[in-house]
Design a protein around this nucleic acid. Structure first.
Lengths: 244, 244
DNA sequence: CGTTAAATTGAGGTCGTTCAAACTCAGTGG
DNA sequence: CCACTGAGTTTGAACGACCTCAATTTAACG
């Protein structure tokens, strides 16, 4: 359901995830110009679609709250999940060059999005130096973190890296340090990691047995980040706090 | 070895990979402004370094000829290869936000690079609409294609996807359709794919046995793209020709 | 409370890794 | 010109990891 953004009493100035989203380090004047571009907010329930593969790319979307998955369908018709998005994330950036959405975005929780028309945004960048720098930094940062899953067939390493990644991202969003309320299903996580759901389940229980985490329904509490990092075998996730 | 670009008789206007690099679809006037920013060219032999992890990010680099690998070192001290670059590719984009190079770039063949100072380039974008659009498209395109290796532990699928990817990229650069002079070693490829070198070797020979390709030293001729694509289990690589 | 999807558990088979050894090839020096 | 060298590639055998299939339990939601 799409609402007028002003009627919904939403603006970039009063947004709780502004510091993770485009306005980060952007001055008030430019933030207001950005705000003026964004006329619509989109409210979706779980398992609804923001956009679908091959549709014309007119807008990028900013996730205000909730969680969604980005996927494509392979020849066999099952999902390849490429990404999960959390509040403050921008959706559709990878589709700018191709002009059509490359993937499908489906909510995994009730979610709220701001609709940002791309061409007007692009125009605005020329007259807004902060905005220009920030937008390019976001794209750069996203490339950076596309490498967080280790290029290995080692399932435990991939799983540990995923848990750490979500942990850091939720921490960035002010959630409790090590208690992750994982918004997505184990099945989705397994598809994201390229593992069989049974394998992921066994690995999570193995980690629990080794006191690295505690599982309770969809809540995972990480108990030993150091060992998890060792298992992941890759450097710690880079937070936005370390970016410009 | 760094040379003055004018003395080397190099300019964006006369560059053979201009249509793959920043100047693609950029008008002459803006291309000339870009050209004016780039004062240095860098000539390297095999196994030399363009930049190293953690160094301050001042420049991005455009690869004019040759080939290089992008990697980081894990705790055990062995390489995790994140990318291979071919002529026309831009290096360092993922490091813009963090202001330090996230990875190390090492040549795997004698290579030539243009040195593009980042801050002046960023400034230039505001007054050059074509350049601005193109630069953002490049970053978007790169995100897009960071997904070309299937998220699976299936080694054959990963290998097939890699071969198709390099094949398409070389085709884009005007090399013979299916004859790949692979610029990198099998060892590097195995590290890129997260496989043991022995596994990769066996898979390549298996593909040869199945008449999908012919191996001869470092030359690989792909014989059956359709079956390779089936094995890769993911959609064909998106070429820049399909981008704006 | 009933229905359905998600998570869990076990057994067996396949696939990828590991370790060890042999081979190839390009580069080097005698 | 040829032997030496070392990195890269190839081959084999055994082990371990991950997947598949099937069945069961648990959780989610109307």
């Amino acid at each position: 359901m799409i609402k007028n953004r002003q009627h919904a009493n939403v603006s970039c100035g009063n947004c709780s995830v502004a510091s993770l989203c485009i306005p980060r380090h952007v001055n008030n004047e430019e933030t207001e110009k950005l705000n003026a571009l964004i006329t619509n907010v989109c409210y979706l329930e779980s398992h609804e679609f923001v956009y679908s593969q091959a549709q014309e790319m007119k807008n990028i979307y900013a996730l205000r709250s909730g969680c969604c998955k980005e996927y494509s369908l392979n020849a066999d018709g099952d999902e390849t999940i490429h990404n999960f998005f959390l509040p403050g994330d921008l959706l559709g950036l990878e589709s700018i060059a191709v002009k059509r959405y490359s993937f499908t975005i489906e909510t995994v929780q009730p979610s709220v999005f701001c609709v940002i028309p791309y061409e007007p945004l692009l125009e605005l960048l020329s007259e807004c130096p902060d905005l220009k720098r920030r937008f390019i930094n976001i794209t750069s940062y996203k490339m950076q973190n596309s490498f967080f899953i280790p290029n290995t067939t080692n399932a435990k390493a991939r799983t540990a890296a995923f848990l750490l990644n979500v942990c850091f991202r939720l921490r960035e969003r002010g959630r409790g340090i090590n208690h992750l309320q994982l918004p997505m299903s184990q099945y989705d996580i397994s598809k994201f990691l390229g593992l069989a759901p049974e394998t992921l389940c066994r690995i999570l229980h193995d980690f629990q047995y080794k006191d690295l985490l505690v599982l309770k329904n969809k809540t995972i509490s990480l108990l030993n980040l150091d060992v998890l990092q060792e298992i992941a075998g890759c450097k710690e996730y880079v937070t936005q706090a370390e970016t410009a």
